[in-house]
Design a protein around this nucleic acid. Sequence first.
DNA 1: CGAATTTGACCCGCGC
DNA 2: GCGCGGGTCAAATTCG
Length: 306
Amino acid sequence: MEKKEIMMSVKMEDASSLFSSCYSNSNNIPLWSVFDLCQETEEKGSLGFMDLLGVHQDYYNGGGGGGAPLLADNNSPSQVAGKDSTEATTVKECPSNSETQQQPTPTTPKSASPLSSSVSTTTTVDQAAPSSQHADKLLKAKKTNGKKREREARYAFMTKSEVDHLEDGYRWRKYGQKAVKNSPFPRSYYRCTSGSCNVKKRVERSFTDPTIVVTTYEGQHTHPSPLLMPRSSSSSSMPQTYFSHQHYLHPHHQQLLFNTFPSLDFPPPPPPSSSSQDTTNNNALFPLSDHGLLQDVLPSHMFKQE
DNA sequence: CGAATTTGACCCGCGC
DNA sequence: GCGCGGGTCAAATTCG
């Protein structure tokens, strides 16, 4: 399979080039939207990348009906929607540090969607080896915090967006920015503002395709998303359906995904009626997909109650 | 005025 | 040993 060959050759540290590879293959249509490189879900129970981001079942079933596609861009939703410019791809990166690797996780996909099974069988080994160096470096950097901490799994979200910092429902504080070698675009470092939560994310733009934003999450939120809490004070002004996929993927890009995965039993894409104001009736636009696009894309076990 | 961002300095390990 | 690059810190600055 073509997909597999590409994935096998991917190193997580070069997510940008990875993504460009995905695109370059077919008329700028992503070859896949989500893939799980190391099946860590089994290691951590049913932990999916949504869980990693701290989005749990409650939110899936919550008012938004939104499958919590945390790639919505509410920095400027209108901008994104209007420019038709968001697509999302996720990459799960093996931790591959020496501590966690002693328990190599079988890569057998759990019954899931055709997509997930086709992409998740790959890689634990292949992925772990090449990225171990990078993992070490991360560990080193962690030490500078004073305590040695196990490196968390990382998930890279690749989003076609004109906005650098994609809103994902959490509050982040930027703590650094570095120029990236061989790239004109700097990499930004963010940390979750919640005191007890040390989830980090890096945001960088692919230099091979400047429209692609690579967001790498590291760690797992220990708290609910302030913006996803139905009645949280911080989200009182947030439409309840904020995280429905209307903001996650513009219909046009959903269309691309549908085209990309014709074998998936997706409901037909909604009419291209979205705009920045479409935050109030998204559910009506997606009567068949209570949990969002990602539910269709991700293995079903990720959406099951623990 | 507190929170968030900016940005240069610093730390660390790796490769040569 | 030294330079390089990734990641983090923290003081200064900006913003709401």
